[in-house]
Amino acid sequence: MSVWVVAEHRNGAMREVTYELLSHGAALGLGPVTALVFSGPGDGSALAASLDGKAPRTLIVEDSSLLGFNGTAQAAALATLISQSTEPPKVILGAHSAAGMDWAPTLAGKLACPAVTDVVALAAEGASLAATRVVYGGKLNSKVKLGEGPSVIATIRPGSLEEEPSLTPMTTTIETANADIPAELGKRFVAWVEELAGAVDISQADILVSVGRGIQDKENIDVAEALAEALGATLSCSRPVVDINWLPKER
């Protein structure tokens, strides 16, 4: 058995959630973890280097269709790698992120395999996995069981590790693979757009002061902002506050 972790990176930089995923993957106890780096031509080695010593094996897949991020190309590559492997991974782990919400369900469709998204806790149970999720806007927790596979997909909510990712230092073997991605996928990455210069990434903050519908008035946000400042915290909000333009999307 083995676990594959899909590394998440943007604009040439590895995202923190990748280390969390490696930690989750190792904790499953379902065999060795392989990190998969999908990238445009020539970008894979630098990205793989940032995972050195954190997984026993890193597999680099480079293709012009993987430049930037292309969930369709990434899912096609994963499906090919899985079908080619003599022992397919028991679990494919990814982040429940903008990227994960694109490639993971697409891969689930291609493999017709069990999948679960936005997981906050994951454990091996019997021949498959049990996952804890937060449902109904965070008001209830649900526990779900995945079917047996051969392979199953799970995406994990960033920041849901109880502790900092702890990975025993190890020697990483770096390999490359060709995934024969179809030339015409009907979907092309065009560009990254930095919508807000100097934007904050709230998923990386230690303390959040968060406002929701209960804030009632735009002026009241100043109160929350002052509290955040006093605490050395980051101001964040729920979706409705963004949708009425009281706070920017990054929050």
């Binding site: 990227a99 934007a199 979706r239």
Partner: peptide, 26 residues
């Protein structure tokens, strides 16, 4: 399309029709 990413980033993607698009609020 522009996809909404974390941390104030977006991503422009071009998709040939027929296609399926999932919509974010706002």
């Amino acid at each position: 399309v522009t996809r909404e990413l974390e941390g104030g980033w977006g991503e422009e993607v071009e998709v040939d029709l027929p296609a399926l698009v999932t919509i974010q609020t706002g």
